[in-house]
C-alpha cells in the first residue's frame, strides 16, 4: 500500500496537517487499511525531503500544515495515470498452502478447500452487510467494498476450480502423477486478483 501517494493525493485538494491526513485517508477508504499517525509523519518527512511537499505554517494550535509542491502534483498525476503493476504477484499463503498440501502425505486437500471457502464466504457476508448499510453518497467506500467483495469472490471461484480439478484427478486411475499435474495447474492459475 503506497501511503506516499495516498497522502499526496489528499494534499492536492488543500494543505492539511498529519492527523487530518490520517482521518481523511481512513474515511475515504472506510478504515480498511488503518494508518498510524507515526507512519503519516514519517512519510510526510520523506515527502518533504524529496521536494514533493513543503511546510505550510501552523494554525496556532500546534498543527503543522503541509502543502503539495508542483513536483508533488506531477507525482500524483503520474500515479493516477499509471496502472498498478502486477508483475510481481504478492505472496499468496493460500495458493502456497494448497500447492504444498497436494503432495504432503496424509493431508485431505478437499478439507482445506472447503474450510477456506466457508471462511472466505463469511468475510464476503461481512463485506456485503457493510455494503447493505452504506449509502449511495458514500461512493468511494462502496467501491472499496466492491473491491474486497470481488477479491473474495475470485478466491471462492478459484477454490471451486481447484476442487473440481482435484475430484477429477482423484477419479482418474494413476492417481499420484495426475494429482501432481492438477497441483501445478492449480498453482499457476492462482489468483490474478488476489490481495
Amino acid at each position: 500500500m503506497t501511503i506516499r501517494h495516498g497522502l499526496l493525493a489528499l494534499l492536492v485538494e488543500q494543505p492539511r496537517y498529519g492527523y487530518q491526513l490520517r482521518i481523511e485517508f481512513e474515511s475515504r477508504t472506510g478504515a480498511t487499511w488503518p494508518l498510524n499517525v507515526g507512519q503519516v509523519y514519517t512519510t510526510l518527512a520523506r515527502l518533504e525531503r524529496d521536494g514533493l511537499v513543503e511546510p505550510h505554517g501552523d494554525d496556532g494550535e500546534g498543527h503543522a500544515y503541509y502543502a503539495i509542491t508542483s513536483a508533488g502534483r506531477a507525482e500524483v498525476a503520474r500515479w493516477f495515470a499509471e496502472p498498478v503493476a502486477r508483475s510481481a504477484p504478492p505472496r499468496d499463503e493460500l495458493a502456497i498452502k494448497l500447492a504444498l498440501a497436494i503432495t504432503a502425505p496424509g493431508v485431505e486437500v478437499l478439507r482445506i478447500t472447503q474450510a477456506q471457502r466457508t471462511q472466505t464466504l463469511r468475510a464476503l457476508q461481512d463485506y456485503t452487510r457493510l455494503k447493505a448499510k452504506a449509502t449511495e453518497a458514500d461512493l468511494a467506500w462502496l467501491l472499496v467494498l466492491d473491491s474486497l467483495i470481488y477479491q473474495a469472490e475470485a478466491e471462492i471461484r478459484w477454490l471451486d476450480h481447484c476442487e473440481a480439478r482435484l475430484v477429477r484427478a482423484e477419479a482418474e486411475v494413476g492417481k499420484g502423477e495426475t494429482a501432481e499435474v492438477g497441483a501445478a495447474t492449480a498453482a499457476t492459475t492462482s489468483r490474478g486478483a488476489g490481495s
Binding site: 464466504l121 464476503l124 456485503t128 469472490e153
Partner: peptide
C-alpha cells in the same frame, strides 16, 4: 452458484453429493 449473491444470506450451506458439507 454465485458466492457474491449467496453473501446476502444470513447463512450459507454447502452441498456436495447430496450432503451438507459445511455451513457458515
Amino acid at each position: 452458484h454465485e458466492a457474491r449473491h449467496a453473501a446476502w444470506a444470513d447463512r450459507v450451506v454447502f452441498l456436495r453429493d447430496g450432503l451438507i458439507v459445511d455451513d457458515t
